[in-house]
């Protein structure tokens, strides 16, 4: 009897150890990745002149690590430029997803509860989802020449240049359409009687949607919505085609200079992977944080 007890304990401990090992590795990887990115950005744009290294130059000397491994030396040499470019990738993604969300909520509510506004919302969603994102960016940049609107704005250092605003507008419009669809399906999965109960205590339709339906729907929407965030990180590379110097664009021009396509794009892939894993970890955390016993997952009634 004591023997089986002992065996079980060992097995449990083993699982706990391997589980927490994985967790610690993830945390260590995250700290390393973001620590390095933040250090690069800080170094480029916020340290007084003379402190740190010049922008684009690595903290380590590539020649010093060359004896260890050529690939490592290659990475050390080019990663700084990629880190700077990753800043724009992050800005494009975060600003577009947040702005997109702000507009997607009314668009989806209009679609589900509106009459005329439902048709408008449907038309918008179908138009945007039915045409390529790249074509939308070209319309904004080449046809409408929107970047002239933003010419006067300061664009030093970490501040984006005019064309980045155009890309943000394009990604936001696109993201509104997709996010609205995720939220619409979440709105439809809220029990209709929830709104009836809200109306029965005298709340207006608008109050009922705001205080009862949306808080539930937005929780239901998180898993699908996380998907949109992950897509947007990678779709932001299309900004390269309207000259935004984001991650993919910078990688492409470095590779065009040194012909080390495989090496550069392997590094870029690792950076995108780091961003995507961070995003999905973040969203999983949000999902846990706003979880409510009995809502979603298990039966609610």
């Amino acid at each position: 009897m004591s023997e089986t007890g002992a065996t079980r304990t060992t097995a449990d401990t083993g699982r706990v150890v391997s589980g927490s090992l994985g967790r610690w590795l993830t945390i260590a990887g995250g700290v390393l990745f973001w620590g390095w990115l933040l250090a690069r950005w800080l170094n480029n744009w916020f340290l007084p002149a003379g402190v740190g290294v010049p922008p684009g130059e690595s903290f380590l000397d590539p020649a010093a690590v060359a004896p260890i491994s050529d690939s490592l030396a290659f990475a050390v040499e080019y990663l700084p430029q990629l880190a700077d470019a990753a800043w724009l990738t992050v800005v494009l993604t975060v600003v577009s997803i947040v702005l997109g969300f702000v507009f997607a909520v009314p668009v989806s509510v209009a679609r589900v509860y509106g009459t005329y506004s439902s048709t408008v919302s449907l038309a918008f969603t179908e138009l945007i989802r039915g045409t390529p994102l790249l074509a939308q960016l070209f319309v904004l940049y080449y046809a409408l020449n929107l970047s002239t609107l933003f010419r006067g704005l300061p664009d030093d250092g970490f501040l984006p240049s005019a064309v980045v605003y155009v890309a943000i507008i394009g990604f936001t419009i696109n993201s509104v359409a997709y996010q609205a669809e995720y939220i619409r399906s979440a709105l439809l999965s809220v029990d209709r009687e929830q709104l009836t109960a809200a109306r029965a205590i005298g709340l207006s339709q608008r109050q009922g949607i705001r205080h009862v339906v949306l808080p539930q729907a937005l929780r239901f929407a998180i898993p699908g919505w996380s998907n949109e965030l992950v897509y947007l990180i990678k779709y932001s590379s299309l900004a390269a085609f309207i000259t935004v110097p984001e991650l993919f664009n910078v990688a492409r021009s470095i590779a065009a200079d040194n012909f080390a396509y495989t090496g550069i794009f392997a590094l870029v892939a690792v950076l995108y992977l780091g961003l995507v894993i961070s995003a999905s970890k973040l969203m999983a955390g949000v999902e846990r944080r706003v979880a409510i016993p009995g809502l979603g997952g298990t039966a609610s009634q």
């Binding site: 929830q194 109960a197 005298g202 009862v212 808080p215 929780r219 409510i292």
Partner: peptide, 17 residues
């Protein structure tokens, strides 16, 4: 009107969140 008339439902319909 509904402020003056309360209603209790068969399916209860508490606000789940």
């Amino acid at each position: 009107l509904r402020r003056d008339v309360g209603m209790v439902f068969q399916d209860i319909n508490l606000f789940t969140h």
